[in-house]
Amino acid sequence: MTAPNSTERKACWDARDRLWTCLEDNDDKAASCQRLQSEFEAQCPAQWVKYFNKRRDFLKYKAKMQTEGFTPAKGPQEAS
Rank of each mutant, 00 (worst) to 15 (best):
S80W: 10
W20P: 05
R18D: 05
S38C: 07
Q43C: 05
A42I: 05
L19C: 01
S38K: 08
S38I: 09
N26C: 10
N5A: 04
K60Y: 12
E78F: 12
K50V: 11
T7M: 12
R18V: 02
S80K: 14
R55L: 13
N53A: 13
K29N: 14
L36W: 02
F58A: 04
D57E: 15
N53I: 08
E41H: 04
M65D: 02
T67P: 03
R9P: 01
T71S: 13
E8Y: 03
C22M: 02
A73I: 14
A15F: 01
L23F: 02
F40G: 00
P72Q: 14
N26A: 12
V49G: 01
S38D: 08
A3F: 01
M1A: 02
A42H: 09
E78R: 08
T67A: 07
D25K: 13
T67D: 04
Y51Q: 11
Y51E: 08
L59A: 11
S80H: 12
N53G: 11
F70M: 11
A11R: 02
E8P: 00
R56Q: 12
C44D: 00
R55C: 10
T21F: 07
T71C: 13
E24Y: 09
M65N: 06
P72W: 13
D14W: 06
S80I: 09
S32T: 15
C12R: 00
R56T: 07
E39S: 04
Q43F: 05
D14V: 06
A15G: 03
Y51G: 09
R55W: 08
S38T: 08
R35Y: 10
S80M: 13
F58E: 04
A15K: 00
W13L: 09
R9E: 06
C44M: 02
A73L: 14
Q37E: 09
F52Y: 11
C22R: 02
T21P: 03
A30D: 13
W20T: 10
S32I: 11
E68P: 06
N5T: 03
C33G: 00
L59M: 14
A73G: 14
F40W: 01
A42D: 08
K54T: 09
K64G: 10
C44N: 02
R55A: 09
F52V: 07
K64H: 14
P4E: 01
W48F: 09
P4R: 01
K50Q: 12
L36E: 05
D17F: 06
P45M: 05
E78C: 10
Y51V: 03
A3Y: 00
E41T: 07
N5D: 06
Q66R: 05
D14Q: 06
K64Q: 15
A15W: 00
C33V: 02
T71M: 13
Q77F: 15
F70W: 12
